[in-house]
């Protein structure tokens, strides 16, 4: 079974993000970038499936500027076999990404598509669901366990009440949650090998997708600074404050 993994290049999780002076977005110039942690989990899962003999080939897909190829290389160093890069400098929103992924899925015909449940830059948590919808495929989101059976894929999902297991008919789509696995460090020999693995370049136009943003960003602002707290003398005082000042309970 071929597995397709989507990987997004985002600001590194350790970087303190700053809003641009003109409030049009966050500062990205000379900021350390890395693979979205949920996408890392997706790649790791695919590599484990391949090691278990459940997957035959792993294709890593990323979309965005030239530098996205570094993120694809990271996936290749972890164990993916080849990459697809949809090169564009345009702002990409989840629907556009889902449409382009759909076109790639139709060409590649994987048995399983794995995505991170969300990206840590904008936390949209939409692309996987949109892609499953567009493809008309079953989806198992927020996965903490994936079991590949004969023609079906059991996905244990993290939901508010606990865990839920759904059984999907392949081909299917899965989005990863934090506890699905712990991504490996890429080994040096694999980093060297990744350099020689192929990355195919595509464009939104060639995929026939109009990526024009459907949403407009009006303004990006930093959250208000936290104000200093106060110590309360008793639980009663705390409850009173929660009612009267914070208004969070009645």
């Amino acid at each position: 079974m071929k597995v397709l993994v989507a990987v997004k290049r985002v600001v590194d999780a350790n970087v303190k993000v700053r809003v641009k002076a003109d409030k049009t977005g966050v500062e990205l110039a000379n900021i350390k970038m890395a693979m979205n942690p949920f996408c890392e989990i997706a790649v790791e899962e695919a590599v484990r499936l391949k090691e278990k003999g459940k997957a035959t080939e792993i294709v890593a897909v990323s979309m965005g500027p030239q530098s996205c190829q570094e993120t694809i290389r990271t996936a290749l160093a972890m164990g993916a076999d080849r990459g697809v890069h949809v090169k564009t400098d345009a702002e990409l929103q989840p629907l556009a990404v889902a449409k382009m992924l759909k076109a790639i899925v139709e060409a590649e015909k994987p048995g399983l598509v794995i995505l991170g449940k969300q990206a840590i830059d904008n936390d949209c948590n939409q692309t996987g669901q949109m892609l499953a919808g567009l493809l008309g495929w079953p989806q198992g989101t927020f996965a903490s366990k994936i079991d590949i059976g004969d023609g079906k894929i059991d996905v244990t999902r993290e939901i508010d009440g606990g865990l839920e297991t759904v059984s999907l008919k392949a081909p299917a789509l899965v989005t990863t949650d934090l506890r699905l696995n712990e991504p490996r460090y890429a080994s040096l020999p694999n980093i060297m090998k990744a350099k020689k693995k192929p990355i195919e370049e595509k464009t939104p136009e060639a995929l026939g997708v109009d990526v024009t943003p459907r949403l407009k960003t009006l303004k990006v602002e930093e959250p208000p600074k936290r104000k200093g707290g106060v110590k309360v003398a008793s639980i009663q005082e705390l409850v009173d404050k929660l009612k009267a000042e914070a208004g969070v309970i009645q």
């Binding site: 570094e70 290389r73 160093a77 460090y185 040096l188 980093i191 060297m192």
Partner: peptide, 22 residues
């Protein structure tokens, strides 16, 4: 010939992770 920026970036980034986290 192998010592290109993309390769050394990949090596140094992963080495940094290894040294910092392990």
């Amino acid at each position: 010939a192998d010592v290109t920026p993309d390769l050394t970036d990949a090596i140094f980034e992963e080495a940094a992770k290894f040294s910092q986290e392990v």
